Amino acid sequence: MKRHVAAASVSGAVLSALLFGQALAASSTTEDPSVKITRDISSITVIDHGRKVVIERNQNPNNTIDPEYAKTSRDCPPFCVQPMQLLPGVHTIGELELLKLLKQHADGDDSIMIIDSRTPDWYAKGTIPSAVNIPWTTIYRGTDNYDPFIVENLLTDTFHAKVKDGIWDFRGAKKLVLFCNGPWCGQSPTNIKELVSMGYPADKLYWYRGGMQSWHSLGFTVVKPHE
């Protein structure tokens, strides 16, 4: 019996992966680019603040990474290399997993929210399409501008958590996908750690560890907030 259950689980996972690939392929551009995301996926389309944006890779074979992300060495602290497993239960994800979540969100799954945890100056330089900016300085209790009322409103109005008599209920809260500048950046890890300390379920938190550095290095589409 256990063998049949395991086989069914594996088959379900394979089917899910195949369906995801088909869904992404269906949203791809009509052209056949030479630089694809995967062998079968050319692009995906998301909704970025009310407009459609196609996420694809740069087709110029001579394209190089943005100089902002070309540095290999930054002072540590504060720019120290982050672990692969940030906290127990938190999902560390790569580009394909992020694209899957972006596609689900674009298809109407309002239980998912993509969060750029960087400060507004970094966010203004360019971000991942459909991400919203919630700087780490908003949530982190160690900053001078921390306001518990703003954070409570964020948890209830934006993340859809509930509070009654001082007791938080996160059962209906959103899945949050957080990122910042890269494996050396502590902004999204700070947000995640603060949220977990407030009681936010770790299994509802997804961390794109590669962040903007990895996103740029693969030539993915970047948008500016007011383009």
Rank of each mutant, 00 (worst) to 15 (best):
V196S: 01
A6E: 07
G21N: 11
A26L: 07
K2W: 12
G186Y: 03
P77R: 15
S217A: 09
D66T: 03
E56K: 10
D107F: 01
A202E: 06
I115H: 07
S28F: 00
H160K: 08
V35D: 07
C185H: 14
S34G: 13
N153Y: 10
T137Y: 07
Y140N: 03
I139A: 14
D107C: 02
T127L: 07
F20K: 05
H49Y: 00
S28N: 04
H226V: 12
R51T: 06
S188N: 11
I115A: 03
M1C: 11
Q104A: 06
K204Y: 12
D116V: 04
R39M: 05
E95I: 04
A70W: 05
R57Q: 04
P78I: 04
T29R: 08
I128L: 00
V5R: 06
M198F: 11
L98E: 00
R39D: 06
I44Q: 01
I114G: 00
G108Y: 01
M84G: 13
A124F: 10
S73F: 03
Q104W: 11
L19P: 09
C76Q: 03
T127W: 05
E95P: 00
I167A: 03
H160S: 15
W215N: 15
D147C: 08
K193S: 07
H105N: 12
D157C: 09
G89S: 05
D144E: 06
Y146C: 01
D48P: 02
L24T: 09
S27A: 14
V196Q: 03
K52M: 13
T92F: 01
S214H: 05
Q59D: 15
E97G: 00
H105Q: 13
D40H: 11
H105I: 00
Y140M: 10
L154Q: 10
F159L: 15
K100T: 11
P88T: 02
L195W: 13
F179I: 14
C185Q: 15
F170D: 12
K100I: 01
K100Y: 11
L96I: 02
R209G: 03
D48T: 14
H49L: 01
D116I: 12
G199D: 13
H160G: 04
I112A: 01
V54S: 13
T127V: 10
V35R: 09
S27L: 15
L176D: 04
Q22T: 05
